[in-house]
Write a protein that binds this DNA or RNA. Structure first.
Lengths: 346, 346
DNA sequence: TTGTAAGCGTTATCAG
DNA sequence: CTGATAACGCTTACAA
């Protein structure tokens, strides 16, 4: 008959004729314990099939080796790569991830934050939902000094760190690139300005126009959910514009909208990039399938996730201090592809 | 000065002059407790800012309200949708998800399984890595009667349930469709036969050939990782074949390989579907971007994830019984698109 | 270097 | 319907 009770440190202690306290220390390689007893403990643990009980441990020690991850959606290329990066970092350092999605809904974000808090995560990694206005719902974390790291869609906050890229610079560069290709009426497809990423991309776009003495026109700035539908709608909008007002380029704040806009315009007979050039953002897999391939900004979700998680863990381990670094900016590289090349290269 | 100790059921008990046991019961809406006291308890809990301590609860009650999810990779369209579906179901029932990825490596899968076991997940949702040979590493779960649900890449096992689609039938239908379009030399791009999904898709393909009196040719069956590279390689292979041996259609076990094969063949000047028709599997977003759009099998990762998680949770709640149902088969629908339409429709 | 003993906050058992 | 009390398995002062 199989024993049903768990194997505890007491079993190991009894087996070795030492105290449970010693076993507890030995198990975590506490240097206070002699090398020899530590070895014996490790062996006994293995042979008895001991598995530490994380609840007992968490209950007593008040930390859980678990990080909460709160994202808008799990199923986007960027987000799932970011998660993969976090999982990697966490796994490497003996941490686990509890993951929840807000589905772009603030209310669900609030509920999830509460759950994470309740589950006593050691730290929180969060990317805000589309329409989150403020971060009151994170107050419990701040109050208890549970470190919070924002990534991608961040929020300015003195006591936490943000991990992302320089969206303004990236948007500036990509717009400048379009200008250098001879485009003069560049349209921008943007997202909700509540989110820094879209706000900054718009700013970079406007700055580039300004620096090149091109006017900003409200008629060439569309804002929306950047979905497939939004991309197709933008195309309709463009086609409905009188010929002389039509943009000669589109810079979209994400690849999805760019690609579906392209597809619709192509169906309508426009040539890309001859009639209208395109640039997107994210380097999503679809950007390499659309023809012509889409010029875009490449930045690795994997790196962002990895960096954010590693940084959080280092903070938890006392190796670094979150509160001294407000932002970590990773590099983003422009990937120039045929969709934006009006001046054919040699 | 903020109190640092947690608010416990004892605080509530003292506040209401009742016992902690009553509070504990009241908090979980135990019908034993009078409606009135239950209400008072709920109110007191709220006003004192009580947060239940899940560790204490887990330690005592021996269950964690946490499900382990073990997947090959987090960052594929199918997998992230499946996770989204699971997260949804879990969230709805008050469960949390601990997620880890094996990166297609058995060894990491083993380590992750051990961690999940150690974290005392209430149940496990798993999709096997590319080269997992057996499931010895899940024995601890079986021994302790911790329910395991396989999804997508499953493994036959008496005491667990598998959730997926009928891959053989799907592959049969898609191959039959290609045949109905006049294709006679249909190539198959397959994956590792250790995984049921690829094994079954191959079987369906072969069965369809057989039923239509078409020969199966080893020259037209390539197996590999079904990656972008693998797709491009397959194209090279096709191009290197003497003209009379070239396939007039390709059925790929996933969309990625199909799409990259198409792209390479198109670059080489082949026309799709005129010279060679295409069908894939998964209904990945890229299948709707490639031109011509790719005929494929649509089955929802979201539903699979949702079904698997819901089923697991129902089992945990005693509503259903895992051990009586060996497999749940969800529907998969063929999505016919231009890539396979040799006989133009009216 | 090791042992003793007091919790961590909850739930289960048994009694009323 | 409610209460007292003993665990659950581990960590950590404090003592030896």
């Amino acid at each position: 008959m199989p024993e049903d009770r768990e194997v505890t440190i007491y079993d190991i202690a009894r087996y070795l004729n030492i105290s449970a306290a010693t076993v507890s220390r030995g198990l975590k390689n506490n240097p206070m314990i002699s090398k020899n007893t530590r070895k014996k403990i490790a062996e006994a643990a293995k042979s008895l099939g001991y598995q530490s009980n994380t609840f007992a441990s968490s209950l007593r020690s008040r930390h859980t080796h678990t990080l909460g991850v709160l994202v808008p959606r799990l199923n986007s290329h960027f987000m799932s790569s970011a998660l993969a990066g976090m999982e990697n970092a966490a796994n490497r350092h003996g941490y686990n991830l509890i993951i929840a999605q807000s589905l772009e809904d603030v209310e669900k974000e609030k509920r999830n934050a509460a759950t994470m808090f309740n589950k006593r995560v050691d730290g929180l990694l969060i990317s805000l939902s589309y329409n989150t206005q403020d971060i009151h719902h994170l107050e419990p974390f701040f109050k208890r000094k549970i470190p919070v790291v924002f990534f991608d869609r961040v929020y300015p906050h003195d006591e936490s760190t943000s991990v992302g890229i320089n969206n303004q610079e990236a948007a500036y560069n990509i717009t400048k690139h379009l200008i250098s290709q001879g485009c003069r009426k560049i349209m921008h497809l943007g997202g909700n300005l509540l989110r820094n990423v879209y706000q900054e991309r718009l700013a970079g776009y406007r700055k580039a126009l300004e620096d090149h003495h091109l006017p900003f026109s409200k008629k060439l700035y569309l804002t929306g959910p950047l979905s497939e539908q939004a991309g197709a709608d933008a195309a309709r909008y463009i086609l409905d514009l009188p010929a002389e007002e039509r943009p000669d380029a589109v810079f979209s704040a994400n690849d999805t909208a760019a690609v579906y806009c392209m597809l619709t315009l192509k169906t309508a007979g426009l040539r890309i990039p001859e009639d209208i050039a395109f640039a997107g953002f994210n380097n999503d897999p679809i950007s390499r399938v659309i023809e012509p391939n889409l010029t875009t900004m490449d930045y690795s979700g994997d790196s962002i996730g990895n960096t954010a998680a590693t940084y959080l863990i280092n903070h938890l381990k006392g190796i670094s201090n979150l509160y001294t670094t407000n932002a970590i900016t990773l590099r983003a590289d422009m990937v120039i592809r045929a969709s934006s090349l009006k001046n054919k290269l040699p």
